[in-house]
Design a binder for these strands. Structure first.
Length: 650
DNA sequence: TTAACGTAAC
C-alpha cells in the first residue's frame, strides 16, 4: 500500500488527485511516514500556490532538514517569502540549519527588505559553521545586503573572502550598480580585472555595461564590446542587449545599428531596444518599419516593445500607425497594461487626437498618477484648459495626490482660464500639499494670480517666499508688467539688485522690457536693454529686440529701429518684423513697412495677420491698389485671421 | 537541493 501511494504521489500532477491522495493517507495512517508526508507537502506547495502547505508540513512528525529545505525552496520559487521566514522561525528555533537553508532564507530577506532578519542569518551562519569557505552563502549574503541598500556590509562580507570567484565579484558589482553607485561598480570591476587578474564572464559584463549606461559612458562600453568580440563568447545575447541599451541611451544609433545587424538570434528585447533607439533619435520611420519587420518575423511583441513603437508614432505624429498598433495591443490583451495605455494616451495627445486619448483613459481599469498626468498634460498641450481642470478635480476625487510637476501644469491651465476662484482653490491645495516653498510652483502661482487679475495675491505669494530665485523675481516683474505697473516692476528690479545676490538673466530682462513696453516707458526700456548688454553682458535674443523695436516704433524712430535690426547677431524672428510693421502703420511709413512685411511673409507665408497689417500700411499711405491686391490674395489663400480673445472671470 | 546579468511610461 505504502509503495503504491508513493508511486501515485510521484506521478500526481493535479490538485484534485492530490487532495484524494491526502485523504487516503490520513485514512490509512500512512501520513505518519515522513518521506510520504514530505512528498505530499512539496506537491501542495507546487500545485496549489494559495494553499497553505504549512498546515500539512506541521503534521510531519520528524521532518528532515532536506525536506524543510525543499519546502523553503518551493516557497521561494513561488515568491511566498513571508512563509519562508515564518517556516524558518518555527522550525529552526532549536534545529541547526545548513547552508542550503540559510541561502533560501537570505533570498526571502532580500525580497522582503528584511535587513535585521538577514543580519541574524549572517550571525547564525558564522556561529554554526565556516561560512568563509562557502561562496554560495557569500553571494547570498552580499546580495541580501545590497538589496537592503546596505553596501557597507555587502563590501565587508565580500572582503571576508580571500579568493572570491567571479560570481562573488559580480554580486558586489551588481550591488553597487543597483544602488545607483555606478562609479563604485566600475571601480570594483577594474580592481577585479587589473589588480586581481580575474577574467570577466558575459554575466559579469552585463552588470558592468549597465553601470556604464547609468554613467552614459559610451567609451567604457565600447571597450567591453571590443573585449567580448576578441573573446568570442558563445551566444552572449543578454550582453548584446545590454550594449544595445547603452548605445540607445547614449543616442549612438550607428553603433546600435551595426551591433543589431550582427546579432543572429534576436529576442524581443533586442528588437525593443533597437526600436526605442530609432524612436528617440529621430529615425521614427525606421523604428516603425523595424516593428513591422519584427511582427513579420513572428517575434511575439510584449508591452515594452509596443510602448517603444508607440513612441515612434508619437514623435512622428503618425496617428494611422499608432491606431494600428493600438488595435494589435488590444488583440494581444496588452491594452490592459497600464504602461501601454499611458503610452497610447501620450501618442493620441501628441497626434492632436485628445478624444481618442480620453477614450483609452476611460477604458483603463487601473489608473496611476502617471496615467492621470499623461491625460492632464495632453489636455493642456491641446489647449483644453477647461477639460484639464475637470481632470484635475476627478483625479483628486480618485484620491491620487498631485505632485509638484502636476501642480505647475494645472496652474498653467488655470492662468489660461483666468478664473481667480480656481487659482485660490489651487493655492489651497499647494498649501495643504506642502508645496508652498517650492519655487517652481511659487513662480506659477505668481503668474496665475497676476493673469487672473489679482496683483495683490501675486505680491503676497512673492513676499512670503524665502530664498527667492531669479525665476521668482522675474515672475513678479512680469506680473507688474501685465498690470501696466512698470514703475513698480523697475523699483522691484532695483530691490533685487541691492537686497539679494540674484543675478538677472535674459528672461528677467524680457519681463522688465515687456513691462516697460506695456506701459509705454520708452526711455527706461532702452536703458534696461543697454544695461543687459553692457552691464550684464547678456546677448539679447530676438524677443528682446522685438520689444526694443516696438519701443522705438512708438516714438517714431523707425530708422533707428531698422538700424538695430540690421546689427542683430541672432536670427531675426517674426516678432521683430511684426513690431516694426505695426510701428510703420502708426507712423505711415510704407517704405520700411514693406521691408518688414516682406520679411514677415518670407518667415511665415500663411499668417493672415501679416497680410492684413501690410494692407493697412498700404491703406494709410494711400496705396489703395496695393492694399486691394493683397486683400484678395488673402482670400485666394483662404487664410483666416484668428480673432484675439482674452478672458478674465470676475 | 545552493549563488551573479538585460528591455518600458512622467
Amino acid at each position: 500500500m505504502h509503495e503504491i501511494v508513493l508511486k501515485l504521489v510521484g506521478v500526481c500532477r493535479t490538485a484534485k488527485l492530490l487532495t484524494q491522495l491526502h485523504s487516503l493517507t490520513i485514512r490509512t495512517g500512512l501520513l505518519y511516514d515522513t518521506h510520504l508526508a514530505a512528498k505530499l507537502t512539496e506537491l501542495y506547495v507546487e500545485l496549489l500556490p494559495v494553499h497553505n502547505g504549512r498546515k500539512l508540513f506541521d503534521e510531519i512528525p520528524h521532518p528532515s532538514i532536506y525536506t524543510c529545505n525543499r519546502i523553503l525552496q518551493r516557497f521561494c520559487g513561488n515568491k511566498r517569502y513571508e512563509e519562508v521566514l515564518s517556516l524558518f522561525s518555527s522550525t529552526f528555533l532549536f534545529e541547526k540549519p545548513d547552508h542550503f537553508t540559510l541561502l533560501f532564507v537570505l533570498k526571502a530577506c532580500s525580497a522582503l527588505n528584511a535587513l535585521n532578519f538577514g543580519k541574524t542569518i549572517h550571525g547564525l551562519g558564522k556561529k554554526h559553521g565556516n561560512i568563509d569557505s562557502n561562496m554560495f552563502l557569500g553571494s547570498g549574503l552580499i546580495d541580501m545586503y545590497s538589496k537592503c541598500g546596505n553596501m557597507d556590509d555587502a563590501l565587508r562580507t565580500f572582503e571576508e573572502y580571500s579568493k572570491p570567484d567571479i560570481v562573488l565579484w559580480t554580486t558586489l558589482v551588481t550591488g553597487y550598480e543597483k544602488n545607483f553607485k555606478p562609479d563604485e561598480a566600475l571601480a570594483v570591476f577594474s580592481g577585479m580585472v587589473m589588480t586581481r587578474g580575474v577574467i570577466p564572464d558575459p554575466i559579469n559584463l552585463v552588470t558592468v555595461v549597465s553601470a556604464c549606461t547609468q554613467l552614459l559612458n559610451l567609451k567604457a562600453g565600447k571597450n567591453i564590446h571590443g573585449f567580448l568580440i576578441r573573446k568570442g563568447y558563445e551566444n552572449p545575447l543578454p550582453l548584446f542587449n545590454a550594449l544595445l541599451n547603452l548605445y540607445t541611451k547614449t543616442g549612438s544609433i550607428e553603433y546600435a545599428g551595426s551591433l543589431f545587424r550582427i546579432i543572429e538570434e534576436k529576442d524581443v528585447i533586442s528588437w525593443s531596444c533597437m526600436i526605442s533607439c530609432c524612436a528617440h533619435n529621430g529615425a521614427t520611420d525606421r523604428a516603425i518599419s523595424l516593428f513591422d519587420e519584427m511582427i513579420y518575423k513572428g517575434v511575439e511583441p510584449n508591452s515594452v516593445c509596443m510602448i517603444s513603437a508607440l513612441q515612434a508614432c508619437e514623435a512622428s505624429c503618425n496617428i494611422e500607425k499608432g491606431r494600428k498598433i493600438h488595435e494589435l495591443a488590444f488583440q494581444k490583451g496588452l491594452e490592459r497594461d497600464i504602461l501601454v495605455s499611458t503610452a497610447l494616451i501620450d501618442m493620441y495627445m501628441s497626434c492632436c487626437a485628445p478624444n481618442e486619448a480620453i477614450m483609452v483613459f476611460d477604458r483603463m481599469l487601473n489608473k496611476d498618477a502617471v496615467s492621470w498626468f499623461a491625460l492632464l498634460c495632453g489636455c493642456v498641450q491641446n489647449g483644453m484648459a477647461n477639460k484639464s481642470m475637470q481632470i484635475f478635480c476627478d483625479m483628486m476625487a480618485s484620491d491620487i495626490q498631485p505632485d509638484a510637476t502636476m501642480m505647475v501644469k494645472i496652474l498653467g491651465s488655470c492662468s489660461e482660464l483666468g478664473v481667480l476662484q480656481l487659482t485660490c482653490c489651487l493655492h489651497g491645495y499647494v498649501i495643504r500639499g506642502g508645496f508652498i516653498s517650492n519655487l517652481f510652483i511659487g513662480a506659477s502661482l505668481i503668474e496665475c494670480y497676476a493673469k487672473c487679475g489679482s496683483l495683490e495675491e501675486a505680491i503676497e505669494v512673492f513676499e512670503r517666499l524665502t530664498d527667492k530665485d531669479v525665476v521668482i523675481w522675474s515672475s513678479m516683474f512680469a506680473g507688474y508688467g501685465i498690470h501696466g505697473q512698470a514703475r513698480e516692476s523697475i523699483k522691484l528690479f532695483h530691490r533685487m539688485v541691492t537686497d539679494s545676490t540674484v543675478r538677472p538673466n535674459k528672461v528677467t530682462f524680457l519681463s522688465i522690457l515687456a513691462a516697460c513696453s506695456h506701459a509705454g516707458f520708452v526711455e527706461e526700456g532702452i536703458e534696461f536693454f543697454n544695461m543687459m548688454l553692457n552691464e550684464y553682458q547678456l546677448m539679447p535674443e530676438s524677443k528682446h529686440y522685438a520689444i526694443i523695436v516696438d519701443l522705438l516704433g512708438r516714438t517714431g524712430e523707425l530708422d533707428k529701429a531698422m538700424c538695430i535690426i540690421n546689427q542683430m547677431q541672432s536670427q531675426v524672428g517674426p516678432h521683430v518684423w511684426g513690431a516694426l510693421l505695426s510701428a510703420c502703420k502708426i507712423h505711415q511709413n510704407a517704405e520700411i513697412g514693406e521691408v518688414a512685411a516682406r520679411n514677415l511673409l518670407r518667415l511665415d507665408p500663411d499668417h493672415a495677420g501679416y497680410y492684413i497689417l501690410l494692407s493697412n500700411v498700404y491703406a494709410v499711405d494711400g496705396k489703395w491698389d496695393d492694399a486691394a491686391e493683397l486683400r484678395s490674395s488673402i482670400k485666394e489663400k483662404e487664410l483666416k485671421k484668428i480673432t484675439g480673445q482674452s478672458v478674465v472671470k470676475l
